[in-house]
Computed example of a mutant assay.
Amino acid sequence: MTALGFLYPGHSAEDDYPRIEQLLGGDIRVDVVHTDIGVDAHRVDALLRMGSAERLAAGVEELRMAGADSVVWACTSGSFVYGWDGAHEQIRALARAAGLPASSTSFAFVHAAREIGVRRVAVGATYPEDVAQLFREFLVAGGLEVASVTPSGVVTAAEVGMWTRAEVLALASAADRADAEAVLLPDTALHTVAWIPALEDALGKPVLTANQVSAWEALRLADRRVNAPTLGALFTKEPVIQA
């Protein structure tokens, strides 16, 4: 049994994770511990507090006691808002506190893009413009080219968590660009897991979403590979051999 541990801020789209567990099947267990979201706002000050070492450390003991093999801070904005170097320090502190391999959703996006061999991406963000541009900067620091960023201006995770399938499809379609090799949908508050095949069919290219890449990253840290076509191209393509 491989146990994947996730620290998830508040309550919005956490029901994506039991669905992921079902789709992975076999001997994979998914454990989710909720962290204190504080002020629910896609504002830089609120996001920095949400991703603080103290708030993350408060949840790791439960995951460790549950026997987690890896831990992922399942939050995109609460990691990239620290910048590339600051986000590295965030997960180093998390790994020390947990005594486990650790990462975050922001790094998961970069690693997942490399895994499927894409370099140029388009971003459909739920965030306001200023926060969405910080994600662009993070991706560029990770070696990706960003064709475009389409912000939605949504302030709270609670609102994002209520988006429908049609709204998610509309966001992905609006974000897509002909020269983008994949479309990225950050925000773990956004339900996407049930709709990844539909998203990829509609766009004709890989779609990477926050909860999907978080699960893949946790598996990567645990040295597991699972073929799960219903979780999209990321879970079916052979890894790209880096030169």
Rank of each mutant, 00 (worst) to 15 (best):
L171P: 04
D45A: 10
L219Y: 11
P239I: 07
L144H: 04
A158F: 14
H11F: 14
G153D: 02
A87G: 03
H42I: 09
T150Q: 12
L208Y: 02
T188E: 07
V213T: 04
W84C: 13
E137P: 04
T150C: 10
A210S: 13
R225N: 11
G143M: 01
G117V: 02
L47E: 00
L48W: 10
R224V: 15
E159P: 02
L185F: 02
G99P: 01
G25Q: 02
A87H: 08
A46M: 02
G26I: 04
L4Q: 08
A112H: 08
S173G: 13
A198F: 09
G161S: 03
T192L: 05
V81Y: 11
A108D: 09
N227E: 15
G78N: 01
T188Q: 01
E181I: 10
T192Q: 01
N211K: 01
L185Q: 00
R55A: 09
R177T: 13
G161H: 03
R114F: 11
A87I: 00
M50A: 14
A158L: 13
W73E: 01
L219E: 09
V32C: 02
S103Y: 05
G161V: 03
L234M: 05
D31I: 14
G67P: 06
M1D: 05
G204I: 12
G26Y: 05
S173C: 09
S148E: 11
V32E: 08
P239W: 07
A13W: 01
R29W: 04
V110M: 10
A87Y: 03
P101Y: 12
E200V: 03
V81M: 11
G204F: 11
A125H: 01
T209E: 06
L169G: 07
A147T: 12
P229D: 03
G153H: 04
G204Q: 07
V81T: 15
Q22P: 03
S106E: 05
V30F: 02
L234F: 04
S214W: 01
G26C: 06
L56H: 06
R224H: 12
Y82C: 05
D201Q: 15
R64V: 05
Q90N: 06
E137A: 15
D223M: 13
V33D: 00
D45E: 15
E200I: 04
A182F: 08
I28S: 08
R136T: 02
G99N: 00
T76R: 03
Q22Y: 12
V146M: 05
L94F: 10
G10N: 04
A233D: 09
G143N: 08
V32Y: 08
A189C: 12
F80W: 11
A102V: 07
T156S: 15
W163R: 15
K205W: 07
R220N: 13
E62C: 01
Y82S: 10
L23E: 01
E137N: 13
